[in-house]
Design a protein around this nucleic acid. Structure first.
Ligand SMILES: [Mn+2]
Ligand SMILES: [Mn+2]
Ligand SMILES: [Zn+2]
Ligand SMILES: [Zn+2]
Lengths: 138, 138
DNA sequence: ACTCTACCGACAATGATTGTTGATTGACAA
DNA sequence: TTGTCAATCAACAATCATTGTCGGTAGAGT
């Protein structure tokens, strides 16, 4: 995701207004490394600016995803997670606490043998337990 | 997934009754290669045996998944897909028509560098377009 | 033949997300 | 500076997949 000021410019170019609510979402996402849900983003935003509706947060997140500035991750953990890191990378998902971490794996071999299919993207999800949740080995 | 008759035995061992409804789900799954949704399984079952409720189909699918006989795939396409193939493999998902195909890729390099995380499983999802949905190149 | 699980129909409830509406505000172009 | 229209608000309703519940019935296994 670009910087808040670059996003400001981008939104203006698209004919979209730069409102305080949108700027607050920009900042909340920018300073996040934990793949927040819409609810988390909303919590972060309302901490600084109450009365911002969850509906509006969803709108902004969808706008940003539509512009390719963030990615929406469907990890099968209930709510979607939003990722401001759009560089090629993959994820470690803790099946206990739900935390999501970035991981950079060697490029996945695209199945050339998969005739009859044009691959656009590949995503790898590793599931397991983070250190906080790993069973204690006495 | 094992054969219907093996599943019959397994269910009996678990103290579960082998009802016609359960057998119908066994058969519907066994003869499927397209990763059906619960709704699809229900449709296949009611074709032979009307009055089987969707609720019951969900029950049987969850039972089978609990026993590790099938896998529930959360591919971010709305409904869960159920997979009777529990051998290690991965998936091609058509972003146009939603079809899901199996693909066997070289073992994904587990990120040894991911210190502080114990990996239990890795799943790879390739998204793209199947031949039926690929744009026609004149 | 008896018992108790499984199933039925018929709904209600869940949780994440989106739709809607009518009123108000405020960003930005003129 | 001002006028306009997009954006937002609160407050709900609706969606979709899935699960819960319940009273009544059927039938699988002993
Ligand atoms: Mn990430
Ligand atoms: Mn499969
Ligand atoms: Zn954890
Ligand atoms: Zn297709």
């Amino acid at each position: 995701m670009r910087t808040p000021s670059e996003l400001t410019q981008l939104f203006r170019e698209q004919g979209l207004k730069v409102t305080p609510q949108r700027e607050a979402v920009f900042r909340a996402l920018g300073g996040s490394v934990d793949h927040p849900t819409a609810e988390s983003v909303h919590a972060a935003v309302t901490a600084e600016m109450p009365n911002v509706s969850l509906r509006t947060v969803y709108q902004v997140l969808n706008d940003l995803a539509g512009m390719g500035e963030i990615h929406a991750l469907e990890l099968g953990t209930g709510a979607a997670r939003f990722d401001p890191n759009v560089d090629t990378h993959h994820h470690l998902v803790c099946t206990v606490c739900g935390k999501v971490r970035d991981v950079y794996v060697d490029p996945v071999a695209v199945p050339v043998s998969a005739l009859g299919f044009t691959v656009d993207s590949a995503e790898v999800v590793f599931r397991g337990r983070c250190d906080d949740c790993a069973p204690v080995l006495h």
